[in-house]
Design a protein around this nucleic acid. Structure first.
Lengths: 216, 216
DNA sequence: GGCAATCTACCAACCGTTCGGTAGGTAGGC
DNA sequence: GCCTACCTACCGAACGGTTGGTAGATTGCC
């Protein structure tokens, strides 16, 4: 009985529009916006160029749909974590960075920063939506954890912009570096994600720790 | 007579090849590699497209020249600082970050990370040269300051990769963010460079400080 | 004269986009 | 049951424009 509720979720082959979205997002991420042609997207989607224009008004429209698509799913993990009342604040912060590293380095949306930088001057609305619908909410969720910690005395109050600078900066740069040097054969030894993340969180927790006992 | 020694340094209009390099670097930075056409570069350089092909073998060759051009000048400031024996280690580190922020956010070379990410899969050699001739030396110079401090007891020994992660991450991301959200009218209030930099260095110095006295 | 630097004029290939058309499904009147 | 009308999803072919790149003539300095 209960198994019947699952089957509708994952389809073996996505219908037209979604297939285009997934395929073109991959191509955009791999080649950039300008270097990805509508012909290439059509070919990779097993469709004709003309069919793309049935689903999307144009290349720009398709790109915006790619960026927008996945905002929600990329944010839900963090939302669930923040809503979790059973975790202590420092554990919650550590878990938040597990999610942030994972999302920013692995997910399609997270890896899109360089892409958005590429097109931001041509279509500023892409950058605006990326900021208001993804970056902003992500920052707000992280900040919620910090503020909860401050309220219960676990954390010390810190400057918000400076904290974001130190919290998100290394993650985004790590993601960018891994894209940039993706052709290096020893990528994981060059950029050992887990070790960098753990050291990073240690420092942030140290910053947030109220003055007093600091030992080994 | 004596005035003749000065005129060779700064020309009001750079000669052909250099003019192309400067102009095309600006265009690449503004529009990206693929979206910048040879025709546009020619027009902006007050030349014909054919003349570009006299100086450079092709678009890719020109781009590589753009990336390579300026490595040296972007690094000299940091080199001079490290060689300076009169400064204390913590002052030197602070000065190094003044230079790093300035270079990464303002100079042509420093702002090129997103560009290189865009083309890295198509021409991996660009990424390799960027890493070996710019990123690597920059890291080595910063690390020299840290090691000197450790040798004289001012700094505590830290993990190198983790330190680079925290040192360069926020700077690169800040540069990327300012490119990405360049159309925001309140850019400097969104990203107050000086304040973010000072807070950043404070934290790094705190990490490097030997265990013991930590007060306001 | 010779050579470096720049020009004019042009090409084939590809770009994003549009057009006209079609296969298949379905809703509704009669 | 059947016809008309409309729908979504797709296709082949073509459009005007731009691309990176080339051949060959021309300029101006040593």
């Amino acid at each position: 009985m209960d198994t019947s509720t699952v089957d509708a979720e994952e389809k073996p082959k996505a219908a037209g529009r979604d297939r285009i979205l997934n395929v073109s997002t991959d191509l955009f991420l791999e080649k950039g916006f300008a270097a990805t042609s509508m012909s290439a997207i059509a070919k990779a989607s097993d469709m004709t160029k003309a069919s793309l224009y049935y689903h999307f008004a144009g290349k720009e429209d398709l790109f915006i749909a790619c960026v927008t698509h996945g905002y929600a799913t990329a944010l839900t993990a963090l939302e669930n974590l923040v809503a979790d009342g059973a975790l202590s604040c420092d554990r919650k912060l550590r878990a938040a960075f597990d999610i942030l590293y994972e999302t920013t380095i692995c997910s399609q949306v997270g890896r899109m920063s360089p892409l958005i930088a590429e097109v931001s001057r041509a279509f500023p609305k892409v950058a605006r939506s990326f900021h208001s619908e993804y970056v902003g909410p992500q920052q707000a969720l992280l900040w919620q954890i910090v503020e909860d910690g401050v309220a219960e005395g676990t954390f010390m109050a810190v400057d918000q912009k400076q904290f974001f600078h130190l919290a998100f900066g290394p993650i985004v740069t790590l993601s960018l570096s891994r894209e940039m040097f993706a052709t290096f054969e020893d990528l994981d030894s060059h950029f050992p994600v887990d070790r960098l993340r753990d050291g990073h969180v240690d420092v942030l927790l140290d910053i947030l720790e109220p003055q007093g006992a600091k030992g080994s």
